[in-house]
Simulated assay, not measured.
Amino acid sequence: MSDRTIAVISAGLSQPSSTRMLADRLAQAAVAELEARGLTATVQTVELRDVAHEIMNAMLTGFPSGDLRGVLEQVTRADGLIAVTPLFTTTYSGLFKSFVDILDKDSLTGMPVLIGATGGTARHSLALEYSMRPLFTYLRAEVTRTSVFAATDDWSGQDDVNPLPDRIRRAGRELAELVAEQENAGPADLYADAPSFGELLGRL
């Protein structure tokens, strides 16, 4: 079995938070799907509130310090990413955006990403599509087709009438599929388009 790493970032501001709860559920779903494909998975979860001061310092100085350096390494070296934020005034939180802003613009290229958000009412759910998805598309990440929004009422509903559990499972499956495809793809041939030695001699 091959071990894969899933990085999880939660931008919840309280402890405990519904944002962290959703992040954990998504991670559990993705891990279960990976294991069903014969892949083991390690989850590395980061609460952005724990490195909030370092994030602000990095924005001011241009250099990460302290625990933030390890967090950035965990996120950018992972095989897949789950990113969950609370929504404020119909968009992601300032803490979440600040963290994304200090990432190298090429660090998430091709990375499978599952996006999620929490909010008070379901009418804010479209923020995932007009706010979060374009953000990660700009970074050239491979965003899953299914995104997951959890309103306050979703946590009290029963599974047979609440669509949240099924949506979590579907999103986890899609992330696992993207991560598994990377596993099966094999290393890229960096010299596939390079001319042969004979061709180079012929140009002399």
Rank of each mutant, 00 (worst) to 15 (best):
M56S: 11
Y130S: 05
S156Y: 03
V43D: 10
A32F: 03
E129N: 11
L68I: 00
P86Q: 13
D101N: 06
S156D: 02
S65W: 01
L34Y: 00
F136G: 09
L48P: 00
F99M: 02
T90K: 13
A141V: 06
R145N: 08
V43F: 12
Y92S: 12
V71E: 01
E47T: 04
G70C: 03
F99C: 02
N57S: 03
R37V: 00
F149S: 10
A122E: 04
T42A: 03
L103R: 00
M56L: 14
V148Q: 08
S131E: 13
H124F: 04
M132I: 12
A78P: 11
N57Q: 13
L95Y: 08
I115Q: 08
T152D: 08
A151L: 14
G80M: 15
L48C: 00
G62V: 02
V100Q: 01
F136E: 01
G94P: 04
E54I: 02
T89I: 09
E73K: 11
E142Y: 14
W155R: 00
D159Y: 06
A150D: 04
L81Q: 13
T90F: 13
R133G: 05
G110Y: 04
V31L: 12
S93I: 06
G157N: 03
G80V: 07
A58L: 08
T118P: 07
M59E: 07
L81S: 15
K105G: 01
R69P: 03
L39P: 06
D79E: 10
P64A: 10
L87G: 10
S107K: 03
T89C: 05
V51H: 06
G119Q: 09
A27R: 11
M56C: 07
D104T: 03
E142T: 14
Q74A: 10
D79I: 05
T89M: 14
M132Y: 07
L126R: 08
L68S: 02
R123K: 09
E33W: 01
V51F: 14
S98E: 02
T76Y: 13
G94H: 05
T45W: 11
I55K: 01
P86C: 14
S125A: 15
G157S: 10
H124W: 03
Y92P: 07
I115P: 02
T121K: 06
S131Y: 09
D160E: 09
A30D: 07
D104V: 06
E129V: 12
L48V: 07
S156R: 13
L34M: 01
V46I: 12
A41M: 04
G110I: 13
Y138Q: 12
T91L: 07
A29I: 01
F88V: 14
S107R: 00
A58C: 06
V46Q: 12
R77S: 15
L39Y: 01
A83G: 07
A29P: 02
G120S: 02
R140D: 12
Q74P: 01
D101K: 06
E142M: 15
M111G: 09
L34D: 05
L103W: 08
V84G: 07
T121Y: 00
V43P: 06
F88E: 09
S98T: 12
G66P: 12
Y130N: 04
G80S: 11
L48M: 09
T137H: 14
V51N: 11
M132L: 15
E129Q: 14
S125G: 15
S65F: 00
Q74L: 10
F88R: 08
R123P: 04
L139Y: 06
T121C: 10
A52H: 08
V148N: 11
F88K: 03
T152M: 15
D79S: 09
